[in-house]
Amino acid sequence: MKKGYGRKEFIINILSLVLLVILWHVLITLARNDIFNAPFIRLKDVPTPLETMNAFAGSLFAQTYGPALTYGIVDHVQASLERVIQGGIIAFIIGVPTGIGVGYSKLISNILNPVIEIVRNMPPMAWIPLAIFIFVAGGSIFIVFIGMVFPIILNTVHGVRSTDVRLIDAAKTLGASEAQVVTKVVIPTAFPSIIAGLRIGLGVGWMAIVAAEMVIRSPVGLGYFIWNMGDLGRYAEMVAGMLVIGVVGYIMNITILLLQKRFIRWVD
């Protein structure tokens, strides 16, 4: 296992982030003092990093104003994550067996391929209007499911199809039945691909949930939060929410990569 990430890389990464924040600050400050104005963009309305940080700190937890309760960013993150996990579990339970079937059996592949090929080209966002009207509850979870299930299916299919036929031969000569070939050879071979599919799917699902929450009605969720803050002209909170979406997405990705490294030790 080659490790290309050390102290030096870490410092470069941090520096680049710091530089980006400085650039952000300078750009907005210049725009606000009418020294530099970008065409077509009202840069001066964008909050500075400091304003964004203050807004983030100020809206991190739930607050009460008389009769009005506002959820904090932590509540919104929790709600969005729960939807992604719920949608993800359904996508996993349906996607992996489907992928194995399509990858392993020509018949299943021929039956399901047309459906998969058409439906997977319908982006999760395109389902939102329909989901609004046909789902009494769980519309946003459905959107996540649509976003996640195809990366999982396709990666599973890929993993299954990349099974070394010699491994199947070896298993057969060692006495494995057809079912055992699937459970003991095909699935383990596809496992890293399945996890990769899950990772890609989570990325898509995360984006989809945020989009879905902007339209599908629930009082809590990051997408809803951003939209609400936009309605109130509170751009700093809005940008803070956007950054939280990015950071949470990044953390999810890293978490799965780490789990992958920890549990899939046979791949070098």
């Binding site: 739930a62 009460t64 309760l69 959820y71 904090g72 509540d75 929790q78 709600a79 729960e82 996990i85 719920q86 993800g88 579990i89 996993f92 809590v220 789990l259």
Partner: peptide, 18 residues
């Protein structure tokens, strides 16, 4: 185990803030 845990976490409704 992770999937199972997530399943349980998913089924438990979010604690309302208040």
């Amino acid at each position: 185990v992770i999937i199972f845990a997530a399943l349980i976490a998913g089924c438990i409704e979010p604690e309302p803030a208040v």
